[in-house]
Amino acid sequence: MSVPQVAVRGEARLVVDPEIAAVVVTVTARARDRQTALERCRAGQAAVTAVLDAAGAAVEAVETAGLAVYPYRRDGGRDDSVASLTTSVTVARLDAVGELVVALGRLPDVAVSGPDWRLRPGSAVVERARLAAVQDAVHRARQYAAAVGARLTALLEISDVGLSGSSPRFAAPLAAMARFGSEELRLDLAPAPQEVLGAVEVRFAMSEPDQEVFGG
């Protein structure tokens, strides 16, 4: 005799503050010969490193993302050499992101993109989303079983559907300020809250339903 079962999908949606920010910094130098282009690129990168070092513990990780050296044909047919070095920066203190972006952006021959707001790899928020999805599945299954006069008796199967994340477009402004000589530059950055979606599929055995539920 088959055992009555109930299968449900549990879901959870958590919206939390970002934990880190990623900034990409690219130094590009152009010269008539490759050696000079590389030397200028190295000097530019040294300036970037000095800014990152000055940020102290606010900068969590610095990684070289790419190096390129290539010819560039100017108007008139003359070839120059271009050297480009890209660095990925992980910022641990969100209140320092704006000031750091301004400081990097004031350097010559430097392009800055970001910040990209993120959760840390292996963030505890991911585990919270998974567990909340399981709790939602149990709650739904109990409701369905109760609706037919039954109760849950055993867990038969649980399947991790997965997690996904996105960044909702709302946030409180984060002010950043830096001085350019006698001028003051202010950037208002808005850290985007992170949305983590968890889902599981769960199958339970349940007791025999109350036959009166099906009575006409």
Rank of each mutant, 00 (worst) to 15 (best):
M1I: 05
Q5Y: 07
R13G: 04
L14T: 06
L14S: 06
V15K: 07
V16D: 04
V16M: 06
P18K: 05
E19C: 05
I20M: 07
V23R: 00
V23P: 00
V25T: 06
T26F: 00
A29H: 03
L38C: 05
R42Y: 07
T49K: 05
L52W: 01
A55S: 14
G56D: 08
G56I: 12
E60K: 11
A68N: 15
A68Y: 09
P71Y: 04
Y72D: 12
R74E: 12
G77E: 04
A83V: 03
S88N: 14
S88V: 09
V89E: 00
R93W: 01
G98D: 02
L100F: 04
P108K: 03
P108S: 12
D109K: 04
D109Y: 02
D109F: 03
D109C: 04
S113R: 10
S113A: 14
L119H: 07
L119A: 06
G122D: 14
E127F: 05
E127S: 10
A129F: 03
A129M: 05
L131N: 09
V134G: 08
Q135Y: 10
D136K: 01
A137H: 03
A141H: 02
A141T: 03
A145R: 00
A146E: 15
A150G: 06
L152G: 06
T153H: 07
L155A: 12
L156E: 14
D160N: 11
L163H: 14
S166D: 14
S166R: 13
S167A: 15
R169M: 10
A171W: 01
A171L: 04
A172C: 05
A176D: 01
F180Y: 10
F180W: 07
F180D: 03
S182G: 14
S182L: 11
E183M: 08
L187F: 13
L189E: 04
L189N: 01
A190W: 09
A192S: 11
A192L: 14
V196G: 01
R203Q: 13
M206E: 02
D210T: 14
D210Y: 12
V213E: 10
